[in-house]
């Protein structure tokens, strides 16, 4: 299965946010989508999911145009993991995961035993079977995000789309959730994930797509694509990319601010000077 965007333009109403981009994603790939707030990451994701109308070009799944597909047809192929949220009703975790089966069952039917089995397998795959009977609104944010991944897996999709799946998670939970994402690629699934941090793209994706003002600035392996010049274009800040070794002796890239730190120094100096004036 392959997802292909051909000269895709999309946006809200009359406004075009994404301007004629082309991109293809294959099974087994994890794509990190990087870009500043408002560059069109969410717009692109919503269009692939069929939530926003296509303004120009096409979205192809295995060569087939999805323009006239029903939401159920899309849901059988594309799974979605939203940002962390709290629904107003205290559903059981298993029921939340079972919701992923909706596109596979008839309109008037409820999930059958077979669907329960698939949902349980999805929970097992993420090592969270112990959450099955817990109340979704009462578990931690990281656990909730894993449950949403399990729900998307129960959908048995070929393509998984995630919109900043780690937004509003704490440091530990970000790592826990993302390490599972990397495993998904091994399940013959293509993953498209928008990330807040370039580091996440370095560690957890095998291709980075840099989105700037609705167009693709660059598309390539993370090591090659993410450079300090491109990050300056994307985010308007000076960043150094440093290679470090972790205790397993693996090489990792990290981004550290360069000029902005110096600017901070300057403003600190200003504060110091003001204090001196005040004392004098």
């Amino acid at each position: 299965m392959e997802l292909e965007l051909r000269n895709l333009s999309c946006g809200y109403g009359q406004r075009t946010v994404i301007k004629s981009i082309s991109l293809s994603i294959n099974v087994g790939e994890v794509i990190g989508l990087l870009g500043a707030n408002g560059c069109g990451k969410t717009t692109l994701i919503k269009t692939i999911l069929g939530l926003l109308p296509i303004q120009g070009g096409e979205v192809l799944l295995d060569g087939k145009n999805i323009k006239n597909w029903s939401s159920a047809q899309i849901a059988r192929v594309v799974g979605y993991i939203p940002q962390m949220h709290t629904p107003p009703f205290p559903f059981q975790v298993l029921d939340v995961v079972l919701m992923g089966r909706t596109a596979h069952i008839k309109p008037f039917a409820s999930p059958a035993k077979k669907d329960v089995k698939i949902a349980e397998q999805a929970l097992e795959m993420l090592n969270i079977s112990y959450l099955q009977d817990r109340i979704y609104t009462e578990i931690s944010g990281g656990e909730r995000q894993l449950v949403l991944i399990a729900r998307a897996l129960a959908q048995e999709p070929k393509i998984l789309v995630m919109d900043e799946p780690t937004a509003s998670l704490d440091f530990g939970n970000q790592i826990k959730v993302l390490s599972h994402v990397k495993k998904l690629a091994g399940l013959n699934i293509a993953v498209l994930m928008s990330c807040h941090f370039p580091e996440h793209a370095f560690i957890y994706s095998n291709r980075a797509v840099l989105l700037n003002n609705g167009t693709i600035l660059h598309n390539g392996t993370p090591d090659e694509a993410i450079t300090s010049e491109r990050l300056r274009t994307l985010y308007g800040v000076e960043v150094d990319i440093v290679t470090v070794k972790n205790r397993m002796n693996q090489e990792l890239q990290v981004c550290i601010p360069s000029r902005s730190l110096a600017e901070q120094d300057k403003s600190l100096q200003l504060i110091e000077r003001r204090k001196e004036y005040a004392l004098a």
Binding site: L49, I74, Y80, P82, P87, D95, M99, P107
Partner: peptide, 24 residues
């Protein structure tokens, strides 16, 4: 009563229900 399972999915919000395959 026949649509009661889909009411669960709708209770997760419109966008999510659509992505899970419901013609909202």
């Amino acid at each position: 009563y026949l649509l009661r399972w889909r009411l669960n999915v709708l209770a997760m919000g419109e966008e999510e229900a659509r992505v899970l395959g419901i013609n909202t």
